[in-house]
Amino acid sequence: ESETFDVELTKNVQGLGITIAGYIGDKKLEPSGIFVKSITKSSAVEHDGRIQIGDQIIAVDGTNLQGFTNQQAVEVLRHTGQTVLLTLMRRG
């Protein structure tokens, strides 16, 4: 069981404050995608409180990250504006 949710964030001096990890899993058993690996102290993400380590980032400002490499996803996140809309999925 999984839930998908949107989080809109405004960057602070730390930026968004997440590091991400790309993961290619076994299609049947484990998900592939871009996941939140860590959250920086005092960052926008930590202050917001809704995003957790292990959440999958589905889209950034409407750009679907399906099939993106870790590096491609980093580039998408790097080129966002001051306000960012993240679409995430959390597995229950």
Rank of each mutant, 00 (worst) to 15 (best):
I18G: 02
L16S: 06
Q66A: 14
T63S: 07
Q71V: 09
N64F: 08
V45M: 06
G33T: 04
T19M: 08
L88K: 00
N12R: 08
Q72M: 10
T63M: 11
E3S: 11
V7G: 03
A44G: 06
N64C: 12
I24N: 14
Q72K: 10
I57L: 10
G62F: 00
D48G: 08
I18D: 00
H47A: 13
L85E: 08
Q14A: 12
G92W: 10
T69P: 05
D61A: 03
G15D: 11
H47E: 12
L77I: 10
S2R: 10
I57N: 02
N64W: 06
L86N: 00
T4D: 05
T10Q: 10
I24Y: 12
T19G: 11
N64E: 12
Y23G: 15
E8Y: 12
F5M: 05
Q71R: 12
S42C: 11
E75S: 08
D48C: 10
L29G: 12
Q72C: 07
E75H: 09
V74K: 15
I20K: 01
E8G: 06
K27L: 09
A44N: 07
L77G: 01
K27G: 14
I57Y: 02
I58K: 06
T4N: 04
I24V: 14
K37E: 14
N64I: 08
T80S: 10
G62P: 01
A59T: 05
T19S: 10
I39V: 08
I39W: 03
L29H: 13
K37S: 09
I57F: 02
E75I: 01
D48V: 04
G67Y: 05
V74Q: 14
M89T: 12
T40Q: 14
K41C: 05
L85I: 11
D26K: 12
K27W: 06
R91S: 10
V76L: 14
D26N: 14
T80W: 02
R78T: 09
I34A: 04
R50G: 04
S38V: 00
I24H: 15
L9V: 13
D48W: 05
G92I: 12
G17F: 03
Q52T: 05
R50I: 07
T40V: 11
I57E: 03
Q71H: 09
K28Q: 13
Q82K: 13
G17Y: 00
L77P: 00
N12D: 13
Q52E: 12
V74I: 14
Q82H: 13
T40E: 15
I20P: 04
T40L: 12
